[in-house]
């Protein structure tokens, strides 16, 4: 017996749009992305969506499903209440290109301003020496698949449109991976405080809640960065010790 599910999918562009209703046959283990593909193939080939691996490894198919930011390839239809239509719309934080596709280029633009890894022994070709416990923290951050769901859910970017004061959780994770790299020789704290704007974050943890890679963005990246910034800017005792040492 085949069952059907009703979807309300946003159709439109930056000028506005509307939700259109589609009915799709369900199969065991079906995910929202399967339903979107079925609509493309059988009902409307112009429905735009972004996807790649369909295995939650590339982070392309970010959308908002029933108001929840998530990957379409990882959201099972069975897990959603199907007595009501499933509402699928593009991520809110970024400008809509068409239907479910948004313009996420801002993320790539600000990424350019983050200084790359700077090794203490630059120019050498010797194998690096690092222990597993040294790299565990960094490896967690490097699991990031750049789905930008954290950027989407971050209220500073999403509702307050303050891309000018905060780089967003994704870039905090990236900076944390560099700042906590066991062999990084850069002083990144002024950048983290001023350009990247870590103090703008009020650690309400929505980024952690939506991360499909289960990176503890707030506890392991943002808060430790705030503490490192505090060492330099909000700790007169340490400042005194630094002065004395010098």
């Amino acid at each position: 017996m085949t069952q059907t599910v009703t979807l309300h999918v946003f159709r439109g562009d930056s000028n506005g749009g509307e939700f259109r209703e589609y009915k799709v046959k369900t199969a065991p283990g079906m995910v929202v992305l399967d339903a979107i593909h079925q609509i493309q193939k059988e009902q409307d080939g112009t429905l735009a969506c972004r996807w790649n691996c369909k295995a939650a490894k590339c982070g392309s198919c970010s959308a908002e499903i029933n108001g929840h930011p998530g990957l379409m390839c990882k959201t099972r239809i069975e897990a959603l209440p199907t007595e009501k239509p499933v509402v699928v719309q593009p991520v809110k934080t970024f400008p809509i290109i068409k239907d479910l596709v948004t313009d996420v280029s801002w993320n790539y633009e600000i990424a350019k301003t983050i200084a790359p890894l700077k090794l203490k022994d630059e120019g050498s070709t010797e194998p690096l020496r690092m222990q597993q416990e040294d790299v565990d923290r960094v490896q967690e951050f490097r699991k990031c698949i750049e789905c930008f769901l954290c950027q989407d859910v971050c209220h500073i970017l999403r509702d307050r449109h303050r891309k000018d004061i905060f780089y967003g959780p994704r870039q905090m994770v990236r900076i944390a991976a560099l700042a906590m790299h066991p062999l990084d020789a850069s002083e990144r704290r002024p950048f983290i405080k001023d350009q990247a704007g870590v103090l703008a974050c009020n650690i309400t943890k929505c980024c952690t809640e939506v991360c499909p890679e289960h990176i503890k963005i707030t506890d392991n990246a943002i808060i430790p960065l705030k503490e490192r910034v505090a060492d330099l800017y909000f700790d007169p005792i340490r400042a005194l010790i630094r002065k004395v040492k010098r």
């Binding site: 309300h8 506005g16 749009g17 509307e18 939700f19 259109r20």
Partner: peptide, 8 residues
């Protein structure tokens, strides 16, 4: 393929 009245 009905169009629902609700606009985004």
């Amino acid at each position: 393929m009905a169009v629902t009245p609700q606009r985004r």
